[in-house]
Design a protein around this nucleic acid. Sequence first.
DNA 1: TACAACCTTAGACCCTACTCTAATGTTGCA
DNA 2: TGCAACATTAGAGTAGGGTCTAAGGTTGTA
Lengths: 120, 120
Amino acid sequence: MLINELSKKTGITAHTIRYYERYGLIKGVRKNEIKSNKYYHYDDEVVEKLQLIRDAKSIGFTLSEIKQLLDAWFSKKFNVAKKVAVLDEKLISIDEKIKQLKEVKKLIAQFKREVEENDC
Amino acid sequence: MLINELSKKTGITAHTIRYYERYGLIKGVRKNEIKSNKYYHYDDEVVEKLQLIRDAKSIGFTLSEIKQLLDAWFSKKFNVAKKVAVLDEKLISIDEKIKQLKEVKKLIAQFKREVEENDC
DNA sequence: TACAACCTTAGACCCTACTCTAATGTTGCA
DNA sequence: TGCAACATTAGAGTAGGGTCTAAGGTTGTA
């Protein structure tokens, strides 16, 4: 598929997709058999990657962290041990984020009780 | 206390503290009785606010969201209902973040199992 | 063949959240 | 009194993550 279709499928603008491509997160291919244009073609793996990018961004991962994750996910260059190490690292950082969220939640809930009780 | 002490107490640089002050998150006061300088003085409430800023930032709140939170927390201009509304909103957004984190965690854990099992 | 609707690149611009510099003034201690 | 260690302001610079524009080329349908 071309960039416009990819954009519609993922809800990510063509501009941003090109930005991600320059950043090295995804890769389109030019078809050798087509000589008349320089259009990039994207497959379903790219759709998956963009969905992962969206999800990972929403929980606060940076593009550089996401790049590591995608490499562990899709790269053939990494061996099993290396991939598992990257994934484990991300799992730990997610657990830390959850822990911090719960702490702040407790803090806010506590303050809410104070506001309600003391009318302050 | 002056800015340097505040910085040491909170681990936030004086530069960043001034940035937060310009942004409207905190406020120091100049003492009328001191005419020779224009130094700002900060009290313990500012220390508390900076700690909250640090915590809220760590879980991905923007400075603009943190401003709302601080207003609900410390402002005398807001009534109880308004404060509770802001706090509830933040509690909901924390729950959403936790939910998303758990989803991505599941995704990564799932993939980890695949990598381990299939040696891919 | 005209025209809308695509595609490409390079590069400028924007926002957030700092981070630093320069120029200048104040304080406290030897 | 000299001087290090503070304080102030305005404003410039930076990194991350987009977002947009201009200037061009291509495709498909009427």
